[in-house]
Design a binder for these strands. Structure first.
Length: 694
RNA sequence: GGCGAGGUAGCUCAGUUGGUGAGAGCGCAGGAUUCAUAACCCUGAGGUCGGGGGUUCAAUUCCCCCUCUCGCUACCA
């Protein structure tokens, strides 16, 4: 493995529009934090940067819903997230934000550097602008009369009646579907990043260069993307919230959020390190690693590296150990349904139990496939592993030492195998020592290769081996006959405890602190970190050293605690959605607008799944006046069989539209739940087919 | 539909460049023990390695087909 001089570690910038839940933590933050703590213990030069991602349309919309300015909105969520990370003990060297001035400057410089090389392409055109909503309108948000067939409801890109491809400017009497007003043409242009030009380079650098050292899930998805061919990506937006494009001719334009966000890693490093920042991003002997969730793979493995390459001054990520997703009680985490364990709520509900959550999330870390968090699993892992194995081992060693030696570290002297019993003890000792060294090596090896689940398991094995050593050596029996042997046993057991204090720090920082306190370790732990560099057990506590009182590392999680969390999940899920999650009411219409729609009831007489489509059902509807074919995107929610015989509401005079080669003559009405679930709108009782709805 | 990743003991997951009886932790059963938070330690039961076909002396591991889960992507009027 290549030896690096220093490390730049990033965790995905969380988007500042909501609080953090355990899925975020398990995906991008806990693994990174564990890794960073490990690197620090090894004495590596490392920066660990992160911050809030605060730009984009979703922020402006979210702000509008909450009646805040975008700035006030991101301030609110930035502070919530920052505090949650701090309280949970994610050890960023800096948690910054993309609304900072330094970030504006950095992102603009980054843009300029690429622009100076004439790498961007510019696509300039007149676009319709909605003066009421003050936004440029995408083609689909404009309707008007088709110049070809006079259909009054043609879309900006296509007339559905005659099938002609259109551009918005060809429409007669264009209207904005957002406000209903007549939009005006305004010239606008956008800058595009030519991702396609980096295809050859990506094949070399990623497809060839990282075939073996990147995780299969990451590599597979990247290769698939590159093989499908890459397109130029627009990197500017007409928006008033974001980083202004630093060109005089780009007034009123901002950088597209995905362009500015990853540069936030760089800005944060600048903010942290001042003039010293460059070596963390420009020296090839620096190892750059991005920790992310799988939704961010393409972005961090293809787009951002291409940007860095285009800029020309920067190093590239050496690895991107993306995690899969975390589920909760067998179902996907859902913010809108409130099916989630929120980090800030966990910290309130389980005060002082940060290690417990870290431990459980690492032990089920979705490293190779989606994983499931359940509260009962949480309880089991805490009680039967943290309490019973680790906590108990430390406790029994402490208690024994106090009982037999008044809390003073007993003699370091090794015993001679003068009796049968002593010979046995020596054998146990040798066995334990061999096992422990092997385990430490294995743990370190796993940490280096991002196998945190396995690494933590090996860390726990240190306590398992310690427990076995005590059970085999039985010092409590020897206390009556051979105190010298008891001393040797406990001295070694304390050494193991000390090493566990060092070894568990990346995983369980609070336990590390507590054990060190019990060992009264301040001032004598200078060489302890040799565990990490020499990859073997080190002697931690000198003879005669006075220990502090024993304290329990962990307490059992009671059934009631778990029951409360489970019922809480159920309760919050059934409660109606908060208004902030609902879509805003559309602009007012007059009755005439409504009466233009011909909504009717029809009976599904036949239904089949459209081939080659995941979402479409082809329905044959008896509409009374006629029988027609309607395609509907409900296949994920209704099977073809269960649709047959059902009465449904549909729009009878909607312009026909071709999909997948078949013309759909109408639109089935259904209600969409916040989580995207569709339910049909149907009459309360059976009515005659063709009945109108008003 | 295309692409990517997964489907291994009750649960959470390892593993196999194809080959002696397929592993761990937890859970469960039995035993031993008392220093310890009814904890620890030992032993054991449990799997036709998603289904079918093929290649091979030999496949859970390679190839093909099917199926289920997750993600990206097209179709949602």
């Amino acid at each position: 493995m290549k030896k690096f001089k220093r490390y730049t570690i990033t965790s995905a910038l969380p988007y500042a529009n909501g609080p953090l839940h355990i899925g975020h933590i398990a995906g991008a933050y806990l693994p990174a934090d564990t890794y960073v703590r490990f690197l620090r213990l090894r004495g590596e030069d490392v920066v660990y940067v992160c911050g809030s991602d605060e730009h984009g349309v979703a922020i402006t919309l979210g702000a509008k819903k909450e009646g805040l300015t975008p700035k006030a909105f991101v301030d609110k969520y930035h502070n919530i997230m920052k505090k949650a990370f701090e309280d949970f003990g994610i050890s960023f060297d800096i948690y910054s934000r993309t609304s900072n001035e330094i970030h504006y400057k950095t992102a603009q410089e980054f843009f300029t550097k690429i622009n100076d090389q004439n790498l961007f392409t510019i696509d300039s055109s007149d676009q319709y602008y909605d003066e009421e909503e003050k936004i440029f309108l995408a083609d689909r948000y404009i309707i008007g009369t088709c110049p070809n067939c006079a259909n009054p409801n043609a879309y900006g890109d296509q007339c559905e009646k005659c099938g002609t491809s259109l551009s918005p400017k060809q429409l007669i009497n264009p209207r904005s579907t957002v406000s209903g007003k007549t939009p005006v043409l305004r010239p606008t242009k956008h800058w595009y990043f030519p991702l396609d030009k980096f295809e050859g380079w990506l094949k070399e650098w990623l497809v060839e260069g990282h075939k073996d050292d990147w995780k299969t899930n990451v590599y597979g998805q990247c290769k698939s993307w590159i093989d499908q061919g890459l397109q130029p990506r627009s990197i500017t937006r007409d928006l008033d919230w974001g980083i202004p494009v630093p060109l005089p001719e780009a007034k009123g334009k901002v950088l597209y959020v995905w362009f500015d966000a990853p540069i936030g890693y760089i800005s944060a490093t600048k903010e942290l390190k001042g003039k010293d920042w460059e070596k963390y991003w420009k020296d090839p002997e620096t190892r750059l690693i991005h920790f992310i969730g799988k939704d961010n793979i393409v972005f961090h493995c293809i787009i951002f590296p291409s940007m860095l390459k285009a800029n020309g001054e920067f190093i590239l990520p050496d690895n991107v150990p993306a995690n899969e997703f975390l589920n909760l009680e067998g179902e996907k985490l859902s913010t809108s349904r409130n099916h989630a364990v929120w980090l800030h709520e966990y910290l309130q509900e389980f005060p002082g139990r940060r290690d417990e959550l870290r431990y459980v999330l690492t032990s089920i870390s979705p490293e190779t496939k989606d994983a499931d968090f359940t509260w009962s699993d949480y309880q089991k892992k805490v009680n039967s592993e943290l309490v019973a194995i680790l906590g108990n081992f430390v406790n029994r060693v402490m208690v024994l030492t106090w009982k037999y030696f008044d809390g003073k570290v007993p003699s370091e002297k090794e015993i001679a195998g003068t009796t049968e019993k002593r010979k046995k003890i020596l054998a146990y000792y040798n066995q334990a020592h061999t096992d422990l060294d092997k385990t430490v090596k294995e743990m370190i090896n796993c940490l280096q290769t991002f196998k945190f689940r396995e690494a933590q398991f090996q860390m726990m094995n240190l306590a398992r081996i310690g427990n076995k050593f005590l059970a085999d050596a039985e010092p409590w029996k020897l206390a009556k006959e051979d105190m010298e042997a008891v001393a040797a046993i406990l001295n070694y057991a304390l050494t193991v405890v000390g090493n566990i204090a060092v070894a568990c720090e990346p995983f369980l920082p609070d336990a590390a602190k507590s054990i060190k306190k019990q060992l009264n370790a301040s001032g004598l732990d200078k060489k302890w970190n040799e565990l990490w560099t020499k990859e073997q057990l080190v002697h931690t506590v000198p003879e005669g050293h006075q220990l502090n009182a024993a304290e329990l590392l962990y307490k059992n999680i009671e059934d009631e605690d778990i029951a409360r969390q489970v019922s809480r999940l159920k309760k919050t899920e059934s409660k109606p959605m908060e208004a902030t999650n609902l879509k805003a009411i559309k602009p007012e219409v007059v009755f005439d607008d409504f009466s233009k729609l011909d909504i009717r009831i029809g009976k599904v007489v036949a239904a089949e799944k459209m081939e080659k489509s995941d979402k479409l059902l082809k329905l044959t509807i008896n509409a009374g006046v006629d029988t027609r074919t309607i395609l509907s995107g409900i296949a994920k929610h209704y099977s073809a069989e269960e649709m047959v015989g059902k009465q449904v509401a549909f729009i009878a005079n909607l312009a026909p539209r071709k999909m997948m080669g078949i013309e759909s003559q109408g639109m089935i009405l259904s209600a969409e739940d916040s989580d995207g679930k569709l339910r049909l709108i149907r009459p309360d009782e059976i009515v005659n087919p063709g009945s109108t709805v008003s």
